[in-house]
């Protein structure tokens, strides 16, 4: 179920990218897309009845059934990359607003 939801989120993000012309909305759409993607990646690591992949004094043996730790590590990387790109995009948006006085891509003209 959560996997379907994550794909729908990705599609919402793509819809936003296709239909919006406002810089901030585009960045938001990009983020929605990335969050959907991250959820999707986490969800492919889920194992039914699997434990959180951390050894503790309760789950102390590696022989128990854990969920797949690799997608979690991948998502960590992908979240951080998303943060970096968003920061850069927002800085660009600020710069554009300084220059054109608007956040609307259409009003900025061809320059």
């Amino acid at each position: 179920m959560i996997q379907y939801f994550s794909i729908v989120l990705m599609l919402v993000g793509i819809y936003g990218l296709l239909s919006q012309r406002n810089v901030i909305k585009l960045i938001a759409a990009l983020n929605i897309f990335e969050i959907g993607l991250n959820l999707f990646i986490v969800s492919i690591g889920f194992v039914k009845d699997g434990l959180v992949p951390i050894l503790t004094s309760n789950n102390e043996s590696s022989a128990m059934l854990y969920v797949d730790p690799l997608p979690h590590a991948l998502v960590l990387t992908s979240i951080v990359i998303g943060v970096g790109v968003t920061a850069l995009a927002l800085a660009l948006a600020k710069k554009m607003h300084d220059k054109y006085g608007t956040y609307d891509m259409d009003e900025m003209g061809g320059k």
Binding site: P53, I54, L55, T56, P69, A73, L76
Partner: peptide
């Protein structure tokens, strides 16, 4: 590492 995600990361 006891945290398997950390050992992957």
């Amino acid at each position: 590492s006891a945290n398997m995600v950390t050992s992957v990361v």
